[in-house]
Design a protein around this nucleic acid. Structure first.
Length: 373
DNA sequence: AACGCGGGGGA
DNA sequence: TCCCCAGCGTT
């Protein structure tokens, strides 16, 4: 007898029991968010882990918790400070959503996390899986999750064909996830299936010999481990071109805040023009004067999922603009951008480090330890 | 150089 | 209900 929707012949409890036994011996039990488990800590870790692997997330999580120990601290912070702690993680909309959701939790729920999944899903940045993860991991509630690791484990174990982004595949996987989630030890089971996906049932080379559910894994039986889950159909990536102006004035380097949404939304970066030829004109129009000189740096490529960005950095030196400086909202001159507490995109950080190093060598001050003291 | 990750939002 | 968007690290 098989279950109609899931196609499972086995009892769900058997799958969970094998996973839990494996988890007790081989799972991860010392991750920072597994200590002092609260909905807030689970939430922040889940959002960070959506886009980044555990090893990278840990230091970000520690710094974030040190600065924003609870939902009230996060709600009371400025967006700039939240994005500063998110700098380098990518997907900055999630940092902004985290901040907004914290404010809604304080405003609508006095900072207490609601226990209804639908209420959590109404918060920005929290969908079905993240809501379920918060409730299951921090409260042991009977909720099924379906993150990337779980999708991979289930698609393989039941040999589910098709890209997991397709509606029919999603539906099937959610049905499987709910069917297999046990009534007892839900938090451990949830962590167990994520751990299995992260450490054994990996994307590249699954270690089937170490898998507690390999016996009845249909992908393994059919030799499909490495071809499932079916990859997303891929499209050709367009190229975009941009010229970043690294403008050096007496007060430091000019940074502008980007629009609140879109690419690197809310972060700070260099002024941009379409081509090197427009650099002088931009300075004339925006700073009220010609640059003393400018010099193109080595161009490089920054790759996104959907396009590749060719970046040509140009160093521009301007004289004391003597009142010509426009200290408008969203524009600022910084000497030490690392201390400014601003969110910076990865290529901006890279360029700032690069020119700091170059200038240090030119000035012969490279022997000084910047971090000393 | 390709790929994955969960959710938001517009068509 | 599609379909597109986003930014890094990993492989």
């Amino acid at each position: 007898m098989t279950d109609c929707l899931t196609g499972c012949a086995e009892s769900p409890g058997d799958f969970a029991a094998r996973l839990l036994a494996w988890y007790d011996r081989h799972g991860r039990h010392d991750l920072p968010w597994q200590k002092d488990v609260t909905p807030y800590r689970v939430w922040v870790s889940e959002i960070m882990l959506q886009q980044t692997q555990v090893g990278t997330v840990i230091p970000y999580f520690q710094r974030f918790m040190a600065r924003f120990p609870d939902v009230h601290a996060l709600a009371a912070a400025t967006q700039d400070e939240v994005l500063h702690h998110w700098s380098g993680l990518g997907y900055y909309a999630r940092g902004r959503n985290l901040h907004r959701a914290a404010q809604q939790l304080v405003d609508q729920y006095q900072g207490q996390f609601p226990r209804q999944r639908q209420a959590l899903e109404a918060l920005p940045g929290i969908g079905r899986s993240t809501a379920a993860a918060i409730l299951a991991l921090s409260g042991g509630q009977h909720e099924a999750i379906l993150d990337g690791n779980v999708k991979r484990v289930l698609a393989r174990h039941r040999a589910v064909q098709g890209w997991t982004g397709e509606a029919a595949v999603q539906k099937r996987l959610w049905a499987l996830a709910e069917y297999l989630t046990p009534a007892e030890r839900v938090a451990d089971y949830t962590q167990a299936i994520m751990d299995l996906g992260a450490t054994v049932c990996t994307r590249g080379r699954p270690r089937c010999d170490a898998c507690p559910v390999a016996d009845d894994c249909l992908a393994r039986a059919q030799g499909l481990q490495s071809s499932l889950p079916t990859p997303r159909p891929r499209r050709k990536q367009p190229l975009r071109q941009v010229c970043m102006l690294i403008i050096q004035g007496p007060q430091g380097i000019l940074l502008e805040q980007r629009p609140p949404t879109g690419l690197w939304g809310g972060l700070w970066g260099f002024p941009e023009v379409a081509s090197v030829a427009e650099a002088s004109g931009w300075c004339q129009a925006q700073l009220g004067g010609e640059p003393v000189r400018h010099e193109a740096m080595e161009p490089f490529v920054h790759t996104f999922t959907h396009f590749r960005l060719h970046i040509t950095p140009v160093r521009v030196w301007v004289q004391n603009p003597a009142g010509g400086v426009m200290e408008a909202v969203g524009r600022v001159w910084y000497k030490d951008t690392a201390q400014a507490g601003l969110g910076l995109a990865a290529p901006v950080t890279r360029l700032l480090n690069q020119i700091t190093q170059e200038d240090g060598e030119i000035n012969g001050s490279h022997g000084e330890m910047r971090n000393a003291g």
